[in-house]
């Protein structure tokens, strides 16, 4: 079943047109990795999917609802679309557990006890049960990012967006974060991952999208896109990063 439908998406920042004409469909439980050079519009594309960026033109349908409709309650949509950021963006004035519980508590997704129970389960899932009472500043980058994933999962989203989740991490902890993401993919989460981790895209992705200059240049299953790229720009990009 199609979960996300993007039609003729355009996005400009003033004069600068970052997304020119994006069309893509993403099915339930699909893991889509978005790769491309910096400035290609891949992060902007991701941020349009939960309207962190306003859209200049076109339509985005999530679960059948057009999120470009100004009458739509975007907060309700966002509850179903989790997001993980490059810079983690944990709330520094709260403990790890409070970070995870905050949104479900604010938006009354059950009573406090069940929310806390779920938060502790999520912490266990990302391998950080011992850090519940810690402050975010006491964590390493990899641990912060795993907490950020748990925080996003606490709203029980249908879709998870990852915006270069490992780009700010020390190389030795990248694997911890990727393995949590891989686990999530195996459990059937629908995921869109903007990444520079070609290994992850190849191993975990169901489909890889290559973006450049505001367009989707090429998309395919990982074996084909990495093994047998069709477009010149894809070939040139892959030759630099692989």
């Amino acid at each position: 079943m199609t979960l996300i439908q993007v039609r003729n998406l355009k996005k400009s920042f003033g004069e600068l047109e970052v997304l020119k004409d994006i069309n893509v469909e993403i099915k339930e439980q699909e893991v889509v990795c978005v790769i491309g050079p910096s400035g290609s519009g891949k992060s902007t594309f991701l941020r349009c999917l939960n309207r962190l960026e306003g859209i200049t033109g076109g339509h985005i349908l999530i679960d059948g609802k057009d999120i470009t409709d100004p009458k739509l309650d975007i907060n309700k949509v966002r509850e179903n679309v989790g997001m993980v950021f490059q810079q983690f963006n944990l709330f520094p004035h709260m403990t790890v557990l409070q970070n995870i519980m905050h949104a479900p508590l604010m938006l009354r997704k059950g009573d406090k006890q069940s929310i806390e129970k779920q938060a502790l389960e999520l912490l266990a899932k990302v391998g950080l049960s011992d850090k519940a009472k810690a402050s975010p500043s006491e964590l390493s980058g990899g641990q912060k990012q795993r907490v950020a994933i748990a925080r996003a999962l606490a709203m029980n989203p249908k879709i998870m967006l990852f915006d270069e989740p490992t780009s700010a991490l020390d190389p030795e902890v990248v694997g911890d974060v990727l393995s949590v993401m891989k686990q999530l993919a195996l459990e059937g989460m629908t995921m869109i991952v903007v990444t520079h981790e070609m290994g992850f895209a190849r191993e975990v992705g169901d489909r890889v999208i290559f973006m450049d200059g505001g367009y989707i240049v090429e998309e395919n299953v990982p074996e084909e896109l990495f093994g047998n790229p069709q477009e010149v720009r894809t070939k040139s990009f892959l030759s630099k990063v692989l």
């Binding site: 939960n50 962190l52 907060n75 309700k76 966002r78 509850e79 679309v81 989790g82 997001m83 950021f85 810079q87 963006n89 944990l90 709330f91 520094p92 004035h93 905050h102 949104a103 604010m106 938006l107 950020a148 925080r151 996003a152 709203m155």
Partner: peptide, 27 residues
């Protein structure tokens, strides 16, 4: 306060007012 704080809160579904009151202002 870093814009990422607001973005993280909004991406979780918090309203503008909730974000200001519980995330931005306390910091």
């Amino acid at each position: 306060i870093d814009k990422g704080q607001t973005e993280a809160a909004r991406s979780l579904g918090l309203t503008k007012v909730q974000t200001m009151r519980t995330i931005v202002l306390p910091q």
